[in-house]
């Protein structure tokens, strides 16, 4: 990369970092609102058991949402994360058949499968210029087809007991999944906010043509994000397998929805280039708290979907409203 190119991307990222939009605080206000509502309507929400549930759910959703965030920042979307999680569950159960001694190789196989899916998505998006929505949805369908053809629709096998710790274990009474999320979020946040790689990613998402002209290998940046997103699906698949100890292929679609929802609710722009990891974490906590609170409230499945949909819509409307407002209000240097 040329010196000029590096400076250009640094300028974009630095300006982005310094400009803290007050409207970005809306998800925090939303989270606070849900927490207050929960305190008023379901005081039991703050019992250690329920809080652990919220944290466990947040761990699962958040890990996938961080992978999704990286892809969203490039201006893409990954609808295959749930499929990868399902493929992981099936691969692990079939290969290991519940044998702990095969766990390491089983995890390696799952990771390789995840990388393969990530590369497939990246290839379709970067090389073939297929719209990310279409490419990753096609991958999702393909994975489902492979699972059905491989298992003839009847996946079998147990998850190795040693993996149970990942799904049901606790560290100082805190679910392992949320600890993993914290570590991953810290690493992702640091890389995005304080490294050249992060600046390249934001530049790619904001304006891929300009980023390419400044010397950034845009294709490589996008490919890496899709691979990481797929690997996040692998990790979620492993946690889910450890949680239930049984092949469960029924959750694929829900994870896709939740991962996108958490990122969007947090304020990650669907148009790419804008958003921080902490926003995804806030969106994740908001979503996990809300889903748990609704169950505590005794709301049925329909009500949960209506409520989740309304919050996502509201988040998107707020994002669009913010952008429209910026476009309308002239600044000293012109419009943004």
């Amino acid at each position: 990369m040329s010196a000029t190119g590096t400076r250009g991307t640094e300028t974009i990222a630095t300006a982005h970092r310094r400009r803290l939009d007050p409207a970005a605080l809306a998800p925090i206000a939303g989270l606070a609102f849900v927490l207050v509502l929960a305190a008023v309507t379901t005081p039991n929400f703050y019992s250690p058991e329920v809080l652990r549930l919220v944290l466990f759910q947040a761990g699962i959703i958040g890990i996938a949402a961080i992978g999704q965030t990286l892809v969203l920042l490039t201006g893409g979307i990954d609808l295959s994360i749930g499929g990868v999680a399902s493929l992981t569950s099936v691969t692990l159960a079939i290969y290991t058949a519940g044998d702990d001694t095969k766990l390491a190789i089983g995890i390696l196989l799952c990771a390789l499968a995840g990388v393969a899916v990530g590369l497939l998505n990246a290839g379709l998006v970067v090389i073939r210029n297929v719209p990310p929505f279409v490419a990753t949805f096609a991958s999702f369908v393909l994975i489902q087809g492979i699972i059905i053809a491989w298992t003839r629709g009847a996946p079998s096998g147990r998850t190795p007991p040693a993996l149970g710790w990942l799904g049901t274990g606790r560290i100082f009474e805190i679910p392992v999944s949320i600890v993993l999320l914290a570590v991953i979020a810290l690493v992702a946040g640091t890389v995005l906010g304080r490294s050249t790689a992060g600046r390249r990613l934001y530049a790619t998402g904001l304006n891929p043509d300009a980023a390419a002209r400044s010397g950034i290998r845009v294709g490589l940046v996008i490919a890496v994000c899709y691979v990481i997103a797929s690997l996040s699906g692998v990790l979620v698949g492993l946690i889910n397998s450890g949680y239930i100890g049984f092949v469960d292929a029924a959750l694929v679609g829900k994870l896709n929805l939740d991962s996108v929802a958490a990122a969007v609710i947090g304020g990650i722009a669907l148009t790419g280039g804008r958003g921080r990891i902490w926003q995804t974490i806030v969106g994740t906590l908001l979503l996990a708290s809300m889903l748990t609170w609704l169950i505590q409230l005794g709301a049925g499945g329909g009500a949960q979907l209506v409520f989740s949909g309304a919050v996502i819509l509201l988040a998107v409307l707020l994002q669009n409203g913010r952008q429209s407002l910026r476009a309308l209000i002239p600044t000293k240097k012109g419009t943004q």
């Binding site: 007050p22 409207a23 605080l25 809306a26 206000a29 939303g30 609102f33 849900v34 509502l37 609704l294 709301a299 329909g302 009500a303 949960q304 209506v306 409520f307 949909g309 309304a310 919050v311 819509l313 509201l314 707020l318």
Partner: peptide, 19 residues
């Protein structure tokens, strides 16, 4: 920010009613 928070609250309340 107050306006946005209010909107979020209204949205949540509306969703609750519908739900």
């Amino acid at each position: 920010t107050w306006r946005l928070s209010g909107a979020l609250a209204l949205g949540l309340a509306a969703a609750l009613v519908v739900a």
